[in-house]
């Protein structure tokens, strides 16, 4: 299972997290289109799908089937572990 640091290491995956932060419950189609709005972050559907799997394995993205659609939502809670590791007071501040 990839850890959160591996998941965050790729610029493409950070761009995917940025796009998911804009709205919860996105289909793959919506996510790909958001990324394609900026040529710097444009990726193929297949690439986005593979990156999403890494992010899901790291606990940063939740994939949920609702009826016939598969929806993706940013779940940034694991990022708190990073801040707690080096910023012990961060929990109280949040």
């Amino acid at each position: 299972m990839p850890d959160i640091y591996d998941a965050l290491a790729a610029p493409a995956r950070r761009a995917i997290l940025d796009a998911l932060a804009e709205r919860a419950e996105q289909t793959l189609f919506e996510l790909v289109n958001r990324l394609s709005s900026d040529p710097a972050t444009a990726l193929t559907r297949q690439a986005v799908s593979q990156h999403l799997q890494v992010l899901e394995d790291a606990g940063l993205v939740e994939r949920r089937r609702q009826g016939r659609y598969v929806l993706h939502t940013l779940t940034p809670e694991p990022l708190r572990d990073i801040s707690r590791r080096w910023l012990p007071d961060s929990q109280e501040q949040s």
Binding site: E30, N33, S37
Partner: peptide
């Protein structure tokens, strides 16, 4: 709607 109106490059789309 599975996607509300969203600016996607040159268009605003909804699904």
């Amino acid at each position: 709607f599975v996607q509300p109106p969203t600016v996607m490059g040159p268009a605003t789309t909804a699904v």
